[in-house]
């Protein structure tokens, strides 16, 4: 597992001492360098991250500003043009600006949810697999329960009760999506626990927590990243679905919000593809980037698939 990464790192450094920024990021994330999919995924992430950071500079208009033409007419459903690259909505709002600003909501939800899910899943998987016994039993029953709650309906009900916000969505994802990560990490811990170096640490009198975090945890880190990268996509898809259903935060312009707006404003029957296709494409790109990055981890974790 991690040995693969650690063993190859010094060799790479010797063969190619000058590693670019991307290479350094990939090494920090323990991704196999030079992997086509992982590199593509990271580049897509980078583009969206820069767009999100510079959104206020890039967007030509305020995303919610109602635009009028020079002669005072409402600019409703304007087709794409140089001034309005993707046209306008039925209320005369600039679609491109909304798309640019929507990047922020997507990344905030995606990254926070991924971190929270990966952290909770890893922690529970570590504890469950390492300590075993009734702790393991209890936590795995808890996982059964979480898997028995329908995800989207739960998020809908939660949003309608405690208020629609980005945090509600992150919370729903955190509450229900940790078991997948936890289960895989738990079974990995069960095998790592039996390895000689863990036994050695135990015999030499290290405390269980020290063994867990110093010896076991680093070996399952790539798995954490794998599930984290998948969770980014899940979170963004969930946010979009919830917003589309009308339970999203009303004050945030997100891709899901744009799609709901388009759907609710008969963009489909008008054939305003310029309105509802771009947000979907953006979602696809970010989620695919997550898949690609996770593929990189799979190559690392299960190298036999490579041959």
């Amino acid at each position: 597992m991690a040995h693969v990464a650690e063993a190859s790192a010094p060799e790479d450094a010797a063969a190619e001492p000058r590693v670019g920024a991307l290479g350094r990021i990939m090494r920090a994330l323990r991704l196999p360098r030079g992997d086509f999919f992982a590199t593509t995924g990271l580049i897509i992430y980078a583009v969206f991250l820069i767009t999100a950071l510079l959104a206020d500079v890039i967007r030509p208009h305020d995303p919610l500003e109602i635009l009028f033409s020079d002669d005072g007419q409402l600019l409703a459903n304007a087709p794409p043009s140089l001034t309005y690259p993707l046209g306008t909505t039925n209320l005369g709002r600039d679609i491109f600006s909304q798309l640019v600003v929507g990047t922020r909501a997507a990344l905030i939800v995606g990254v926070t949810a991924a971190i929270v899910v990966a952290a909770i899943g890893t922690l529970i998987g570590l504890i469950s697999g390492f300590f075993g016994g009734w702790i393991d039993n209890g936590l795995m029953r808890l996982a059964d329960v979480a898997l028995g709650i329908p995800f989207l309906p739960f998020t809908i009900v939660l949003s309608s009760f405690i208020g629609a916000s980005t945090w509600t969505i992150v919370m729903a994802i955190a509450l229900l999506l940790w078991p997948n990560t936890a289960r895989v990490i738990r079974s990995q811990v069960l095998t790592v626990r039996e390895r000689a170096f863990v036994e050695a640490a135990r015999v030499s009198g290290s405390s269980p927590w020290r063994i867990l975090f110093v010896h076991v945890a680093p070996n399952i880190l790539p798995l954490t990243f794998l599930y984290g990268s998948i969770a980014i996509g899940w979170a963004i898809l969930t946010e979009a679905s919830i917003s589309f259903l009308g339970f999203g935060p009303s004050d945030v312009v997100s891709w899901g919000y744009m799609l709901q707006d388009a759907y609710g404003s008969q963009a489909l029957s008008r054939g305003s593809f310029n309105w509802f296709v771009p947000p979907g494409v953006c979602i696809v790109l970010v989620v695919v980037a997550g898949f690609f990055v996770s593929r990189g981890y799979e190559e690392l974790l299960f190298p036999k698939l490579k041959d």
């Binding site: 898809l237 589309f244 799609l259 489909l268 054939g271 296709v277 979602i283 898949f291 690609f292």
Partner: peptide
């Protein structure tokens, strides 16, 4: 296949509906 899996279901539905339903 990865791309189809990454697409939100409802968006896929919207595109199909706009194309084959309304269009």
């Amino acid at each position: 296949v990865l791309t189809l899996r990454a697409a939100p279901e409802f968006w896929l539905g919207m595109v199909l509906l706009a194309t084959f339903g309304f269009g």
